[in-house]
Structures are given as C-alpha cells and as structure tokens.
C-alpha cells in the first residue's frame, strides 16, 4: 500500500435498531476520524431508518476468538449443566419458582 494515498483507516459499525435492543454488527467503513466514521456509517448502513444509534470502533482494536478453536475455547462450559434451572428437581406442588 502506498503511504501517500490510502483509503483511510477501517472501522467496524454496530447499529442499534430500536431502543432497548443491543447494538448489532452491520459491516465496516473507512474514515479518518470518529466523526467521519459515524457519518459514513449513517450514510452507508441506515439509509432506510434501520438505526437509532451507532457505535464505531477501529477494526484493529477488536480482539476475536478463533472459530477453528471453538471446541477447546468454549469447553469449560460443557460439563456444567447445573448452571441451568432445568437441572434442579423441585417438589410437586411448589409454585412460583
């Protein structure tokens, strides 16, 4: 990549579609700073009222687990069925639990 001409840093865009719902990854955009990133994200991902709030974060600031290590990585939760309510026996007749 030439140093004198480039397409500006890469940002990931997260959009909240409705109040109370979580922000969801929508895609990425290029921008030189936060304000440009927010405006570009708005113009590219919310032309039809898809969002009410946007987060942008520089792509190289995101750490991610590896899908190929999925089994090992999530393994600690595999043998802990007692974390689920259905694991427990509740005597017949007990209500509101």
């Amino acid at each position: 990549m030439s140093t004198t001409d480039n397409q500006l840093p890469l940002w990931e865009v997260f959009i909240q579609s409705k109040s109370g719902t979580p922000h969801k990854h929508a895609g990425s955009i290029h921008a030189s700073d936060k304000n440009m990133a927010l405006e570009n994200a708005r113009d590219i991902y919310t032309r039809r009222g898809e969002g009410r709030n946007i987060w942008v974060v520089l792509s190289d600031q995101i750490a991610a687990s590896k899908t190929e290590d999925e089994a090992e990585f999530f393994d600690p939760a595999d043998d802990k069925v007692y974390r689920h309510p259905s694991f427990y026996k509740v005597p017949d007749g007990v209500k509101n639990m």
Binding site: T4, D5, N6, Q7, L8, S32, D33, M36
Partner: peptide
C-alpha cells in the same frame, strides 16, 4: 481530500 482528512485527524 483523503490526505487532508488524515492530516486533520
């Protein structure tokens, strides 16, 4: 424009 935006940032 790209250069100016980067310099500004």
């Amino acid at each position: 424009v790209r250069e100016a935006a980067l310099a500004f940032s």
